[in-house]
């Protein structure tokens, strides 16, 4: 490689300006390795291997008795119900807030100037825009499980606080995604609609929403896939579903029951992934 006319290989910054970053990342990993008491040699140590093997061997065979399967089915259906209702609530929260925090709806010069809005009206618009953006920020920065802890205090144990927790967190996420899609729309059809004399509300309802609908649906289905996973674990803080069954089985050291619940979790997660893909293909024209 010392040839005088070596080929002009594009130099990667990895060992140039990026050297510091690589060293820092390496140091951070080392620091974290020591700080967390991690032991990555675990699989190579006879003792560690034994521990892991012992635990996983206790899972077999899964308990497939009729009574347990009924419980697993009930837990799965409850988890599914929580994920569906949670996603629905998230749409109900996220759609209005997302629309209000899209500048094309609230603050776009083109639309507001055309209406000849007064300074006061513009100020209101600004306040609503900032307020809803801030609220969405707050909703999504609190994780679902923290929301669940709060709602359990409010409405008691069971699936309902799980629905609220999913709805609030996911509402924040969907609101942001919705507002981004509403902002990214091609403005020409909207201007055409406006040129026919449509008000801002009509431009929104009959222009923006239909144009953005495939994207909004796609995001909603994607979040449903995330929510089924979360709904399956909400039970560990007492918010119903399979998580609760898993926690109880662990507490009682009923590992063969645990195995069944784990299989049920896998099954509904994979089923929802398939269903969501099917709906996406069916409902959204490519």
């Amino acid at each position: 490689m010392t040839a005088p006319n070596a080929s002009p290989v594009q130099s990667r910054p990895l060992w140039g300006a990026g050297k510091t970053v690589v060293l820092l990342v390496g140091a951070a990993i080392l620091w974290s390795y020591l700080g967390t008491g991690s032991n990555l040699l675990l699989p190579f140590q006879a003792d560690g291997r034994h521990q892991v093997a012992l635990f996983f061997s206790q899972l077999f065979p899964p308990n497939l008795s009729a009574s347990l399967l009924t419980r697993a089915l009930r837990g799965s259906l409850e988890t599914l119900a929580v994920s569906i209702m949670g996603t629905l609530l998230a749409v109900l929260i996220g759609f209005p807030l997302g629309a209000l925090s899209a500048y094309t709806v609230m603050g776009n010069r083109r639309f507001s100037e055309a209406e000849g809005s007064s300074a006061v009206a513009r100020l209101w618009r600004r306040l609503i825009y900032d307020g809803s953006t801030l609220l969405l920020n707050f909703l999504r920065s609190v994780p679902e499980l923290f929301w669940a802890l709060i709602f359990i205090v409010a409405v008691g144990l069971g699936p309902f606080p799980g629905v609220l927790a999913l709805g609030f967190h996911t509402g924040g996420v969907l609101g942001k995604l919705y507002s981004e899609s509403l902002e990214a729309l091609d403005s020409r059809p909207l201007e055409a609609l406006q040129a026919t004399g449509a008000s801002t509300l009509k431009v929104f309802l009959f222009g923006m929403v239909p144009l953005a609908l495939p994207q909004l649906l796609s995001y909603t289905l994607y979040r449903w896939e995330v929510n089924i996973r979360t709904a399956a674990v909400l039970g560990v803080v007492g918010a119903g579903g399979l998580g609760q069954d898993i926690l109880v089985a662990m507490g009682l050291l009923h590992y063969q029951d645990l195995a069944t619940f784990l299989i049920a979790t896998l099954a509904i997660v994979i089923a929802v992934d398939f269903l969501s893909t099917f709906l996406r293909l069916r409902l959204i024209p490519s």
Partner: peptide, 9 residues
């Protein structure tokens, strides 16, 4: 079904 199973109130 989900509304009932999720005990929404």
């Amino acid at each position: 079904g989900s509304y009932h199973l999720a005990e929404i109130s």
